[in-house]
Design a protein around this nucleic acid. Sequence first.
DNA 1: CCTCGTATAATTGTATACAATCATACGAGG
DNA 2: CCTCGTATGATTGTATACAATTATACGAGG
Lengths: 236, 236
Amino acid sequence: MSSYDVKQEVTDKYSLRGRVFHKLRDDILNGKYEEHEELKEVTIGEELGVSRTPVREAFRQLELEGLIQIIPNKGAYVTGITEKDVKDIYMIRSLLEGLCARWATEHITKEQLEEMEENVYLAKFHASKGHMEQIAELDNRFHEILYEACNSKMLEHQLKDFHAYVLRVRRKTLANQVRGTASNEEHEKIMEAIKAGNADSAEELAHRHMINAYENMVKNGLHEIYEKNKALSETQ
Amino acid sequence: MSSYDVKQEVTDKYSLRGRVFHKLRDDILNGKYEEHEELKEVTIGEELGVSRTPVREAFRQLELEGLIQIIPNKGAYVTGITEKDVKDIYMIRSLLEGLCARWATEHITKEQLEEMEENVYLAKFHASKGHMEQIAELDNRFHEILYEACNSKMLEHQLKDFHAYVLRVRRKTLANQVRGTASNEEHEKIMEAIKAGNADSAEELAHRHMINAYENMVKNGLHEIYEKNKALSETQ
DNA sequence: CCTCGTATAATTGTATACAATCATACGAGG
DNA sequence: CCTCGTATGATTGTATACAATTATACGAGG
């Protein structure tokens, strides 16, 4: 085994830069900052008790993750996600998640399948109790398992790239027990197709799963959320 | 028009950091550095006549672009692309380019279509003369036009993300007149489908275009290239 | 009252100094 | 001869100082 095979999280959590990166990432995803809000290097640095250097490096990374936009010599701004962006993301993801499910069918390990079964089982329990926080967490994890199981670091990278975007929206929209249950049932079907070794079916089910998630999102007020945000940012 | 709508290249070309970023990017893509070679902050800085600060920031960005891997407190290493990675990339791209062609059919502007026609026409000329450098350039540009025409910054972002990876391989493999001509003919067909407003056909043709490019690559020595690289890196 | 240029302040861009961490060499001990 | 610990050097991580750029305020001139 050569040294470059060592698996390594893209961003180190234990350096100051890593901490700044993750903190800002979470804050943006959780809506602490308004869209288009300006982030100042010194302010962020003071809040976290670090100098500008690690903050700047974290900014560069957040920019490539698509969470902020840096205008040279001017400043860093939280990016806005439009309604169309969300739609595009789900269309793209529906294709990639399908491919991911196909590849996962061919490469999933025993351990991954077991974690998946546990995930679906637990989610069923929490759905019946209406524990939305746990359901969201398990939903995330289900997809992460799928990404890992597809055995393609390229596809995994692409899908995880979307994660940041998707989380920003989904956190607001999946707080809905009906879809939570339906979503988990779809997870179960995808899992069964993978277990049965039926790649075509797994691909199709994962594809539909994304489309359904998007359509549900539209029905349950994606539009209203964006109207609200727009109104907010216009009053500033 | 609000200020955040201003289009802005992700990485500024005119700051020192931007110059370092683009220089390293080109060098890696052109194979100046071996895979898994270590990049030292001071060395790079001295070569380009800048301090470590902009170099470090460029490193962080290159890491997220997937061109280098940074191991904390240790160093930055040029990432390796395996034969499987290349295959995965082309499979993923075949889906996304298909979707891109579909959306381009619906959103392409008159100007973009004109540039596309010019591109195909010029490429035909250069193909007949065997001008490989120009063909490669026009090939790149054709796909860029397609990305821009799809009118989705999300899809454009994803596809351009791959560009870096793809260029590393393609530069070595497309130097082949037969495929150059065939590739351009496929471009022409995609363009005609878009022009005719036939999204289904455009999607299918773009999808096949990628698969063909990959299969051609495999036939014409992708394997040998990787054998050579592996041998090289093992002797270090 | 409006326009424009200049001065000033605020902010980012870069260089450098220092701290922390990691790799290597070397020698003591077995 | 081998193993392990320590010392030394090399490299990355962070803080700070300074330069360059941009935004703002204010006043002269029309």
